[in-house]
């Protein structure tokens, strides 16, 4: 049934909105699609994800966030911070082993849910604009029921954030040793920072920090943390976009250095 159910005011138009209500979902869809296309290409590319002394343009060790941790046996030597526990039977790109976690984190994120339900699934495309579906059950059944497991992806996401932060710190050690700083180090550090802001502003984080309590007065410390996370939480959509674009740019930077497109710029 639709917005024209019997008994309601008889109006044929699906919406009477006169503004450009389609613009927001169109932009969202375009950005998300570009990211998906880029990430898929890079995940399958299986090269140019690591920079070390073998790269003529490399000044510091850099690893692409799409490929860290690199767990398969054929990972470029030096790129496997956690060793190579997967072994040699895995012959596809090592990115495919890990991408499901950050992907799952974003797919189940409360903000991205709004984004894709509006822009891809058009339910609804915009407020007070009729959706095209004849039936709707929301998140009550599989597979969308899985969105209720968001907190697990959040916990795993924290592990990834920690690893990517370590990657950034490792980068400060130059390919010849010592302490150095280059554009690449800054790129990885910014990427890790954006990811932390995205994760810490997560609604599941807000809930775990104190949202689930009914008596803040009995838990002053958690109340403090909840207040703090709540403040970040209002910016969650912004962090979601910044960190998404950030991670793609960080990967692209590493790719360019690794492929020799240009040289990393060393500050000291």
């Amino acid at each position: 049934m639709s917005v024209n159910a019997p008994g309601r005011a008889k109006i044929d138009a699906k919406t009477l909105r006169t503004d450009a209500w389609w613009l927001q979902p169109a932009i969202t869809a375009a950005v998300l699609l570009s990211f998906i296309v880029y990430a898929t290409w890079r995940a399958f590319e299986d090269k140019f994800y690591f920079v070390n002394e073998l790269n003529p343009g490399g000044k510091v060790d850099l690893i692409s966030p799409f490929y860290s941790p690199c767990l398969a046996s054929h990972c470029v030597s030096g790129s496997s911070m956690l060793g190579q526990p997967i072994g040699s039977w895995w012959t596809l790109s090592p990115a495919l082993l890990i991408l499901v976690f950050p992907l799952g984190f974003r797919f189940t994120c409360y903000y991205y849910r709004k984004a894709y339900f509006r822009s891809f699934w058009l339910s609804p495309p915009a407020c007070a604009v009729a959706e095209p579906h004849t039936k709707y059950t929301g998140e009550t059944r599989f597979p969308l029921l899985v969105n209720n497991l968001h907190r697990y992806f959040f916990y795993i996401g924290l592990v990834f954030n920690a690893l990517l932060t370590i990657d950034a710190f490792i980068a400060f050690r130059g390919v010849q040793g010592g302490f150095h700083m280059s554009v690449g180090t800054v790129v990885l550090l910014l990427n890790a920072t954006f990811l932390w802001l995205y994760s810490l502003s997560c609604h599941s984080c807000r809930h775990a920090m104190g949202g689930r309590l009914n008596h803040f007065s009995k838990h002053p410390v958690r109340y403090r943390m909840w207040t703090w996370i709540s403040r970040l939480n209002t910016h969650h959509p912004k962090f979601a976009w910044i960190s998404l674009i950030g991670v793609a740019l960080a990967d692209y930077y590493v790719r360019c250095i690794s492929a020799g497109t240009f040289t990393d710029i060393l500050f000291f």
Binding site: R113, K114, F117, P124, A128, G138, E139, T140, L144, L145
Partner: peptide, 15 residues
């Protein structure tokens, strides 16, 4: 009360 049917698309907040 059907909370699971809400897909958090936020139109309630908007209006």
């Amino acid at each position: 009360h059907g909370l699971g049917m809400c897909n958090i698309t936020k139109c309630c907040t908007d209006v």
